[in-house]
Design a binder for these strands. Structure first.
Length: 137
DNA sequence: GCCAACGTTGGC
DNA sequence: GCCAACGTTGGC
């Protein structure tokens, strides 16, 4: 089981929006980067990930899971990119800020820090466990 | 609001 | 197939 991290600007699509989408979840459209695409393609049903607020917020705020694997992104006219469906699993009792992540030596190699522009990222088992713990789960 | 980092586009 | 120009992301 792999772990992931999804970035979203809360003004566009927030954790609250994701929670409001409920059990049925939503599609994660709009990825137009081939590294992010590769990550989407590698996702398996039930795999979990962090939901991160970029720009306004800059914190990991919740846990989501994949409920539908890779299929074509209807918002991509070129037909080159796809998406998955995800749903909210649980909020982090204490959101973990980017600042806190950067301050943690064990998280120095996290993609969020090393390649901050990648919108869909892999998270290692160790990073997953640590950030969850920092977030009070 | 600025700007660095990065990806993509398109001319050659 | 290279690379300059341009656009976008996202932290600060």
């Amino acid at each position: 089981m792999a772990y992931w991290l999804y970035k979203s600007e809360p003004s566009v699509w927030s954790w609250d929006d994701q929670v409001a989408a409920g059990e049925a979840g939503t599609f994660w459209s709009g990825v137009r980067n081939h590294v992010a695409k590769k990550n989407l393609e590698a996702m398996r049903l039930g795999e979990q990930g962090f939901f991160y607020h970029s720009n306004d917020g800059r914190a990991v705020v919740g846990v989501v899971e994949v409920i539908r694997t890779y299929y074509p992104d209807h918002t991509d006219a070129s037909g080159r990119f796809g998406m998955v469906d995800i749903r909210a699993v649980a909020p982090l009792p204490a959101p973990v800020s980017l600042e806190a992540i950067k301050a943690e030596p064990a998280l120095r190699a996290m993609v969020l820090v090393a390649n901050s522009r990648l919108s869909v990222q892999p998270v290692t088992d160790a990073e997953w466990a640590l950030v969850r713990r920092m977030g009070g789960l």
